[in-house]
Design a protein around this nucleic acid. Structure first.
Length: 572
RNA sequence: CGGGGCGUAGCUCAGCCUGGUAGAGCGCACGGUUCGGGACCGUGAGGCCGGAGGUUCAAAUCCUCUCGCCCCGACCA
């Protein structure tokens, strides 16, 4: 491709509204342009990288036995009402009506559509298992789109769905997709880890996320090198060591604790460790009020809390509400003697304490020597603890390490959640009707490309991993008025093209400095510069974006040099 | 939705506090000098100062309302 024929316009200045590197560089390099919040045009250069990734994804999914199809972006409300998600999905689901006032939404995901398709076509165990995928534009009306392609509203996603007669078959497909994802991210040369994940509104049992490691990642991950355990903090568990026990008392003792509405103040006043106390927080949800008791030094994981309470939404109750329910000022809530309308949940970390200090549900009073069995009413023990770096690994007991990641892939075992709700059934060997076991497997196309930039850039611009580079070779003719330079460059351009290389030929009438700066910015892996100076030195200048070490290569050896780095043809 | 910030030329921004009728750099066009790391000189085009209302002799500037965008939080494949 000749630059002069291509559609590629770089900018010198950073865009005012871009924060993270990938967003900034994609805009500056002419890959991406915002149309509205979270909605972008992929300019030709950006689209080429997306296409490279899509080809890798297609290749590996087909190896894993998936078949490509394409489903509508606009979906009828009835399907979503049938699965129950028309109510459940919230404001992220972009809903609208057609001219006949029929309800529609712009698909944020396609479980309903695919389940509807398969239930119409498939009726026997003999037709199973099946795996289908598409690469398609989704829309989620995110509360806060940000970071360019990392969290857009409209975005490209590869989504795959599998259908099975039994759980073993689902396990098999799940593993096959897992392995395909591994091959995809390996092929992209990305640094990533696979973590256990919360399954969110999609629902279902088992779930793993593929995280590209990056400090700008939106997700926090905990992992243990010893055991291989790795989980999103939303999901991560730990095995906390109990604190030194406090002496048992005959009965709880009320202590005046003026101005001690926080764990810090209470522990100071009573001379105990935060870990020897229990703090109680009151939550409000669509399932009513919950008091959550957790060890005083720890934080509640609200994702886990939402899951264990099976609620659509849950949030800390407002102060007046808390005061009404506990009969005490904020900061003095405790597990003893709560009204019936409040359900008590006790985190395992708190349940493990034999004798502890907690709020008395009386303003400026705490209790000490409280014991669960003896002093606290009906409660449910749950895991709602936010695990933190340094906590013991649930498998090996070694300290967990923390890092941040960009979620680029997420795979779920859905079980029969959708097939049951929507009557996607088959006849088994005995002629009995059964709901199909389902899996679903997402992979963010734009997000992966953005993640690749987060991981591969420097102060001057992008440094593409070869497989995702929009072009693999940049050929620059430095002085387009110098006949020898132009002749050599044109000849090399033809040679490289004929050899099947994806070559961008910078034939613009620009000063050398501009060409070099642009070359660094757009980050094509292999750079070949033809200039009067290089010709004098006996050839053309050859360098890699990754190290930028330049050397002169004879014109007739260039093809071999490029081939040695790039391999064979790489065109999209 | 809560908190904070920003909307002025294609882009990045100054001007606003203290009202007097529009600026810079980059980019663009033309001419000249340059030509291996975002050149220089000259000339020029380009703005309903996000929108609506108000105050005022006079509003980019002050007030009210609105729309859009960004950041933090809650939320999310």
């Amino acid at each position: 491709m000749r630059w002069s024929d291509f559609y590629l316009f770089t900018t010198r200045e950073d865009p005012a509204d871009a924060e993270v590197v990938s967003h900034r560089l994609m805009v500056r390099s002419g890959m991406l342009r915002k149309l509205a919040a979270g909605i972008y045009t992929y300019q030709p250069l950006g689209w080429r990288s997306m296409r490279k990734l899509m080809e890798i994804v297609r290749r590996e999914l087909e190896v894993a036995g998936c078949v490509e199809l394409s489903m509508p972006a606009v979906q009828p409300a009835e399907l979503w009402q049938e699965s129950g998600r028309w109510q459940k999905y919230g404001k992220e689901l972009l809903r609208f009506e057609d001219r006949h006032q029929r309800g529609f939404c712009f698909g944020p995901t396609h479980e309903e559509v695919i389940t509807d398709l398969v239930r119409r076509d498939v009726s026997s165990y003999r037709q199973l298992p099946l795996s289908l995928f598409q690469i398609q534009t989704k829309f989620r009306d995110e509360i806060r789109p940000r970071f360019g392609l990392m969290r857009g509203r409209e975005f490209l996603m590869k989504d795959a769905y599998s259908f099975h007669a039994d759980g073993d078959s689902l396990d098999e497909a799940y593993r096959a997709l897992h392995d395909a994802y591994v091959r995809i991210f390996e092929a992209c040369e990305l640094d990533y880890i696979v973590v256990e994940a919360d399954s969110g509104t999609i629902g279902g049992s088992s779930s793993h996320e593929f995280m590209v490691l990056a400090d700008t990642g939106e997700d926090a991950v905990l992992f243990c090198k010893g055991s291989g355990y790795a989980a999103n903090v939303e999901k991560a568990t730990t095995r906390l060591a109990p604190p030194p026990p406090l002496p048992a008392l005959e009965e709880p003792e009320a202590v005046d604790t003026p101005d001690a509405g926080s764990i810090g103040a209470v522990t100071k006043l009573l001379g105990v460790e935060p870990a020897q106390t229990v703090k109680t927080l009151v939550y409000e949800s669509d399932k009513g009020f919950f008091a959550v008791a957790i060890r005083g030094d720890r934080t509640i994981n609200e994702i886990k809390l939402k899951n264990v309470t099976d609620s659509l939404w849950i949030q800390l109750a407002e102060a007046p509400e808390v005061e009404r329910l506990t009969g005490a000022a904020l900061g003095y809530a405790g597990p003893c003697g709560l009204p019936d309308e409040v359900q008590l949940l006790v985190d395992e970390s708190a349940a493990a304490l034999q004798s502890f200090v907690c709020g008395a549900n009386r303003t400026e009073v705490h209790l000490r020597g409280v014991q669960w069995q003896r002093d606290v009413g009906r409660s449910r023990t749950v895991d709602v603890l936010l695990a933190e770096p340094g906590d013991p690994c649930p498998r090996s007991g070694q300290a967990l390490e923390g890092c941040r990641g960009i979620e680029v892939g997420h795979i779920f075992k859905l079980g029969t959640v959708y097939s049951s709700a929507m009557g996607c059934t088959f006849a088994d060997e005995n002629g009995q009707e059964q709901p199909m076991e389902m899996g679903c497997y997402g992979l963010g196309i734009g997000r992966t490309v953005a993640a690749a930039i987060e991981q591969n850039h420097d102060d001057d611009g992008i440094s593409w991993p070869l497989p995702l580079a929009p072009f693999t070779v940049l050929l620059a003719a430095l002085n387009p008025k110098d006949e020898a330079v132009v002749r050599t460059a044109e000849e090399l351009y033809e040679q490289l093209r004929r050899a099947g290389h994806d070559v961008l030929y910078d034939d613009r009438d620009e000063r050398p400095g501009v060409k070099f700066k642009d070359a660094d910015l757009i980050g094509i892996p292999v750079r070949v510069v033809v200039g009067a100076r290089s010709l004098e030195a006996g050839g053309v200048e050859f360098s890699l974006r990754s190290d930028r070490e330049k050397r002169i290569v004879a014109v007739d050896e260039l093809l071999a040099e490029v081939g040695a780095v790039v391999g064979g043809s790489s065109r999209v």
